[in-house]
């Protein structure tokens, strides 16, 4: 439904700003366990950047960036990363989500924990991003087969 905007300003600003937002989103995800931020916020920011492109540009370009069909599977994979890591720690002898048991060789326990948290945050971030985009896409797409 979203047609390409006729205004070059919008197209330009959208294209210009979107990458910066994405970088910021990644920063927020990776910075999550040191300061404010984390998987959810980062994921939401990433989703916002994708939505910006979807709003400003024509749908072909937007699909190039993140295909509509990918929304649900990627969301599921992101959640699976979280659940899977939890399950892995459990299988490796620790408690659920006890990151210290993750099999990263040559690292101190604190670093392993940080790594584990990062992985989980990443999973959550991807999941949130994909899910939010999927909601958007579904809402947009509803009219087409309605």
């Amino acid at each position: 439904m979203i047609r390409q905007s006729t205004s070059p300003i919008i197209v330009l600003i959208g294209r210009l700003v979107s990458p910066f937002i994405q970088v910021f989103g990644l920063y927020v995800i990776f910075h999550g366990h040191y300061g404010p931020g984390g998987g959810f916020q980062g994921g939401a920011i990433l989703a916002a950047s994708l939505l910006l492109i979807r709003l400003c540009l024509d749908s072909e370009t937007a699909q190039l960036q993140f295909r509509q069909a990918l929304g649900t599977p990627v969301g599921i994979l992101g959640s699976l990363a979280f659940a899977g890591i939890g399950l892995m720690t459990l299988l490796l002898g620790g408690e659920f989500l006890d990151y210290a048991f993750l099999p990263f060789g040559g690292m101190k326990p604190a670093e392993i924990r940080a790594m584990g948290i990062l992985l989980v945050e990443l999973g959550i971030g991807v999941a949130v991003m994909a899910t939010l985009v999927a909601i958007f896409d579904d809402l947009i797409g509803l009219e087409d087969h309605g």
């Binding site: 984390g38 959810f40 916020q41 949130v128 939010l132 909601i135 579904d138 809402l139 509803l142 309605g146």
Partner: peptide, 24 residues
Amino acid sequence: MLTAIVVGVATIGLAFALLMKIYH
């Protein structure tokens, strides 16, 4: 509260889907 916001967004997203179905 971050979690609560997530829940809120999920609820709103679902509500929109319902809203459009109802209108349709």
